[in-house]
């Protein structure tokens, strides 16, 4: 028991040092622009179909589930605004981040873990190439920048899904639907929700990189790194979300 607690704190300590190292290496040359762009493509562009499908379903389902209750009070016209508000403030950021925890964080964990056990990271190091800068910094940066963009994309597709869902039972044109959406939304709905997605992205990338980069030798550790990356990244998303909501509540 004592050993487990000690190991947990050791792990947290190592993770904090890993984050410090990221910020230390971030401003050091070389820029690794090519690898960064490649990672943006892998993390951002390649996640688009998955995020689009889930975003659309989120909007559609939310509309279909909420409609009967609002219709009972004759407040069906509130539906577009309510769905957009729920999507932008909470559902799209969290669900998109969770999907990316599964896809991106585990992918990074497995990739770096396998590079570690097959000595590819050591090979980089002995060739006088900084593997932390090349592999870790680029992935964390790409994840920090791409996850917010994916969330914005999911917001848009979700609203579109809501429009389709609304039109299953009623009739409303897209222009009127959009005006109902944008009448409801304000700065306080969009800004804090977008800011927190940068933190989601940062931790999704960092946890994946940490798990992969610190994988111990052996093929079993590759699976472990991928698995732990998903679990801890998902947990981190909920914790960040809780803190973000508390903070938003205090400030706005």
């Amino acid at each position: 028991m004592v050993i487990e607690i000690k190991n947990t704190f050791d792990g947290i300590g190592e993770f904090v040092l890993f984050i410090f190292r990221f910020f230390k290496e971030l401003f050091k040359p070389p820029l690794e622009l090519r690898e960064f762009v490649k990672q943006c493509y892998v993390i951002g562009y390649k996640s688009l179909p998955l995020v689009a499908i889930t975003g659309f379903i989120m909007g559609l389902v939310l509309t279909l589930q909420s409609r009967p209750t609002l219709a009972e009070f004759g407040a069906e016209s509130w539906l577009p605004g309510m769905v957009a508000l729920s999507l932008i403030r909470e559902i799209a950021p969290v669900i998109t981040a969770l999907i990316c925890a599964g896809k991106v964080s585990s992918g990074i964990g497995a990739e770096l873990g396998s590079m570690k056990v097959t000595e590819q990271i050591d090979a980089m190091e002995v060739s006088a190439i900084n593997p932390f800068k090349y592999l870790v910094v680029t992935r964390i940066l790409a994840s920090t920048l791409m996850i917010p963009l994916l969330v914005v994309f999911a917001d848009g597709i979700g609203i579109l899904g809501g429009f389709v869902g609304y039109n299953i039972h009623s009739e409303l044109n897209i222009v009127r639907y959009n005006s109902l959406v944008f009448e409801t939304l304000g700065f306080v709905d969009i800004f804090p929700a977008t800011i927190k997605t940068f933190f989601f992205g940062f931790f999704i990338g960092t946890i994946g990189c940490f798990m992969g980069f610190t994988a111990s030798n052996g093929t079993e550790s590759v699976g472990k790194a991928a698995n732990s990356a998903v679990v801890y990244a998902s947990l981190a998303i909920f914790i960040i979300d809780m803190l973000a909501v508390q903070l938003t509540d205090l400030i706005f």
């Binding site: 396998s114 590079m115 097959t118 000595e119 590819q120 050591d122 090979a123 190091e125 002995v126 060739s127 006088a128 190439i129």
Partner: peptide, 27 residues
């Protein structure tokens, strides 16, 4: 100093995501 030393790893440690040309061109 490392640049003056070459290290051949047990399984070659080739970068899986790169072609042979890219593996050699990278360093």
């Amino acid at each position: 100093i490392r640049l003056r030393i070459g290290f051949l790893f047990q399984n070659g440690a080739l970068y899986d995501s790169m072609t042979v040309r890219e593996n050699l061109g990278f360093p």
